[in-house]
């Protein structure tokens, strides 16, 4: 097993674990046992309990169900659009290239978080959720990804590269899917997709945490479910005050690190030869 396979294994394990956790998420947190309040991982395996004796496992699973599909969906969308941008460069359509470049300049000039907040404000309540915000985030990230992929394809030779391969007798499908996309655009589109997925998770954690701090409902998930930000919110006082919820903070940070690991290994695996 070479380093690429090892990296792929790590990325795949993280992704499968995220999806499995999302699928196994309960609709509501269990009632909890007040006697188990603040229980550590040793007392209540595997992760301990919150201030009302509810297992943190429920937080983990519900948090995964909040982020899994929107993050992966946004990542796939950005990868797809990035690949499209690269392939469009290879068909040498100056009008389309100019349009893409203009779009990138326009969208790239928008501070993403501000746009997200404006969208969160104007979206009807029943439309609000991480899914719609992730879609907006992906649409904001896509022009940059398309432009970067187009630049890679341009360095490759663009339409001249395709013509040269046609002269060697390769079919259109093989040229675009194998030679352009799989062999050359892969590192860029995978990195862009993985980064977007990671950013969507971080966005959810950030927005949910801030909503919790203001004691307001989050834009990203219904009040009935918990996010990974709840773990940070629960565990944070343990840093300042003498409240034994440090294990919740550690779990929250580990989950964030896991997402970063997933994105980093996926990017590295796509880059490795």
């Amino acid at each position: 097993m070479n380093s690429r396979h090892a990296l792929l294994m790590v990325a795949a394990t993280c992704t499968v674990a995220l999806l499995a956790a999302a699928l196994a998420a309960p609709e509501r947190l269990s009632q909890g046992d007040p006697g188990m309040a603040y229980a550590g991982p040793l007392k209540l395996p595997p992760f301990g309990a919150d201030n009302r004796g509810r297992p943190l496992l429920g937080y983990l699973l519900q948090g995964a169900s909040v982020v899994a599909l929107p993050a992966i969906g946004a990542g796939l969308l950005v990868s797809f659009l990035g690949a499209l941008g690269g392939l469009l460069r290879c068909v040498a359509n100056p009008g389309m290239e100019a349009l893409l470049h203009g779009l990138r300049e326009l969208v790239g000039a928008l501070p993403r978080m501000v746009v997200i907040l404006v969208v969160a404000l104007v979206l009807p309540l029943d439309w609000r959720g991480l899914g719609s915000l992730a879609l907006v985030w992906a649409l904001l990230a896509a022009p940059g990804a398309m432009d970067e992929a187009a630049e890679v394809a341009g360095r490759l030779g663009g339409a001249r590269f395709v013509e040269a391969l046609k002269a060697h007798g390769f079919s259109h499908l093989r040229i675009y899917l194998v030679h352009v996309l799989a062999l050359n655009l892969r590192p860029v589109v995978v990195r862009q997709g993985a980064e977007t997925a990671m950013q969507v998770v971080f966005l959810e954690v950030g927005l949910s945490y801030l909503a919790l701090a203001e004691n307001q409902p989050s834009f990203t998930h219904p009040d009935t479910s918990r996010s990974w930000a709840d773990l940070l919110y629960l565990g944070y006082p343990s840093v300042i005050l003498d409240i034994p919820t440090g294990h919740a903070l550690v779990l929250g940070l580990l989950l964030i690190a896991g997402i970063a690991l997933m994105a980093t290994t996926l990017t590295a695996a796509a880059r490795a030869r």
């Binding site: 971080f202 954690v205 950030g206 945490y209 940070l232 840093v239 300042i240 964030i256 970063a260």
Partner: peptide
């Protein structure tokens, strides 16, 4: 740079508060 802003900001807030 792999750390999200919310986590680093929390660390900074904790340090200031302590």
């Amino acid at each position: 740079g792999a750390l999200p802003a919310v986590v680093l900001a929390l660390v900074a807030a904790a340090v200031v508060q302590l």
